[in-house]
Amino acid sequence: MIRTLLVTAAISIAATGVSAAQTIGFSQIGSESGWRAAETTLTRKEAEKRGIDLKFSDAQQRQENQISAIRSFIAQGVDAILLAPVVATGWDSVLEEAKEAEIPVVLLDRQVDSSDDLYLTAVGSDLVHEGEVAGQWLAENVGDQECRIVELQGTTGSSPAIDRAKGFRNAIEGKDNLEIVRSQTGDFTRTGGKEVMESFLQAENGGQDICALYAHNDDMAIGAIQAIKEAGLNPGEDIKIVSIDAVPDIFQAMAAGDANATVELTPNMAGPAFDALEAYMADGTMPEKFIQTESKLYTQSDDPQAEYEARKDLGY
């Protein structure tokens, strides 16, 4: 009884709110990584900037929590739903419920296996493209010089690891002076990056034979930088370092000259999502089914210290 009362109350509040401002529900996976925390912070900021009333729900890594959050958003009659799905499958019925209630759903950062008429659009990064941007930077930076590259891969079998490896290879394909000589997983962690880099250094003549390091994420690169320093080499000069994600700490390393470049996986997925929703609600413009965020390259010449300052409070 109390529950029905509460729901009715929620609906009436939401209904009165519509005229003044939009209400958008956001079902977030959880806060398992700094990047995810930054995504949440930026989504809140973007919503605030646009005067949107954001209803936030943290699913703590559980799909059932996300499904019940979406059902409660539907019951509250929100204007749209943002969903960062924890897994790819099992969304059909709840997405159909949203569709029947005529509430557009925008997927953030990850995809689902459901039919694409069940959601408005998906905003995300192209992981292969990220690897390509990193590879292109290295190819341009090295020029015609012989370069033996070592690669720190992400968790074996994970889609970022597979796609970022693929993109990098696409970019250096056909350039005979670039060669990946060693490739091993560092599990996306600092400890993993450091331990594997130590073995690379041992195996490649104390690091003398390594010209560049490509790490699938910044954390592994930061671990590797420490290993390179402890081996008596100068990271950033003796061994060039390019990685992906653009977390605050890598900008600090770039400011200190220890890292050379990073490709941003922007945590601002909500900005493009809100833009698409605004256009759709204004005149029914259907966005593309996949909105690709920019994979921006940052180097030491992009004022890394300022980038660090801008990012350090986003919750990374």
Binding site: E32, T189, R190, T191, I222
Partner: peptide, 10 residues
Amino acid sequence: DIRGADANNA
């Protein structure tokens, strides 16, 4: 070793 506490992975 890594000059940082990684609560998720340590």
